[in-house]
Amino acid sequence: MKQSEDTKFLITNIFRKIAETILLLIILSLLVFALMYIAPGDPAEKRLTSQGTAITKEVLEAERARLGLMRPFLVRYGEWLFGIIRGDFGISFKDDMPVAPKLAAGLHKTLILSSASLILSLLVSYPLAIWSAFRKGRVSDHIVRVLSFIGNSMPNFLISVLLMYVLCIQLRLFPVIADGSPASLILPVLSLSIPMSGRFIRQMRSEFIDQLNEDYVTGMRMRGVKERYVAVNIIRNSLGHILTIVGLQVGTLMGGSVVIETIFRWPGLGKLVMDSINSRDYPVIMGFVIIMGTIYIVINQLTDVSYHVLDPRV
């Protein structure tokens, strides 16, 4: 009885989440489209500037008519949105090529870089956070805390510049520019992972310490249950919070990847968007926000649902 009620509750909850996600995505797309509006100049003008054409009144009018800018906002928004749903992100201002393939290629590269960084950060910080929490107040805990504090205080562009200086220039271990080879992934991944690990360790450690202060841990210890079983229980109960922490850090990772890809010329979405910002290629910028925003929203809605599954009390 209880079981089936729980399942029913979970299913309604999942449907509610799906509806919420769709609503959020619509709001995201509206905001992105509106962003074009507040940008200085209209698309026809931007397009011409981006291509370096000399702007005369006639050229501008013709361009406006061609792009259908005279139609109402909502019609154009709807057209744009349905294009995106079909996988059509519009035509680049810069070279008149479809934007979608560029975005897809960039996304592929960005996913490689980001997931490698995320996995490395988790591999480093998860065990360290548990270890540190169990040794709260001891020397080893302090060392981990100081290191994570420093990592947390370093902007990733700074780490990448310092790593470049020490490893590429002083020690000559790596090539300065990423050429797509696995070795060239090392520096970008390190640059993204160091600050992220710092944040992970801090947040996870405090989550584990909260768990260690729960009544059930005292209860287990009073029954003489071994510490390794205590750890099993803590890991189990903290999963929901840990997933939430990771989901939220994905957002920071996305911002960081723009910086790191630009520095190391890693041909991902981040580098693509920075190039597009410089050449005012708006469809690419819009596509970038849509893709990143969608990934972030979906991930965090998923962690939210799994939080409820993992801790059935809430």
Partner: peptide, 20 residues
């Protein structure tokens, strides 16, 4: 809630890039 649902740095980069 809606503002928290978007990745901050991504939004910031796009907004700063477009506003220029």
């Amino acid at each position: 809630d809606i503002f928290l649902s978007f990745p901050q740095m991504v939004v910031a980069i796009a907004v700063a890039g477009i506003l220029g």
